[in-house]
């Protein structure tokens, strides 16, 4: 009986570790621009092929949230020399938080660019992402 309980516990532990190994959102990426603007980029789940959601939190150097931006998001695969097939969609959630819907069609390293507004002079983040 004790034997069975030990086996069941081991099985549960094994399953739990197997489930946690490749799923769940990765650690958020925090980046800073020269003027102190901070961006926190947090995927909702592990980045994979197809649709993905990434929450972006933007604050000024004095930690106040940056609101009302029309974010321009794009991504490129520098190792292969190509970009996305569909333009990402960004929407504002409030209090400096934004949601980006982005579709990846290939696994590997992507560089996501997030410009804080339109025009070539808009400051922008370059966020490395690993799609698996």
């Amino acid at each position: 009986m004790r034997h069975h309980t030990c086996f069941a516990l081991a099985l549960v532990a094994l399953l739990a570790s197997a489930c946690s190994s490749n799923s769940g959102p990765p650690e958020p990426v925090t980046l800073r621009l020269a003027d102190g603007t901070q961006g926190i980029f947090a995927p909702e789940d592990a980045l994979g092929l197809g649709e993905n959601m990434i929450t972006i939190t933007l604050t000024r150097a004095d930690a106040t949230p940056i609101t009302g931006l029309n974010l321009q998001v794009d991504a490129f695969m520098p190792a292969h020399g190509h970009g996305l097939r569909q333009p990402p969609v960004a929407s504002e959630l409030g209090e400096g938080r934004y949601m980006v819907h982005i579709d990846f069609h290939m696994t590997g390293r992507w560089d996501m660019s997030v410009a804080l507004g339109e025009g070539e002079d808009a400051p922008s983040f370059s966020v490395p992402l690993e799609v698996r």
């Binding site: 321009q72 794009d74 097939r85 333009p87």
Partner: peptide, 12 residues
């Protein structure tokens, strides 16, 4: 080598 571009128009 060749010129490539992203959806948003960035050229490399």
């Amino acid at each position: 080598a060749r010129d490539v571009h992203s959806l948003a128009g960035a050229s490399h």
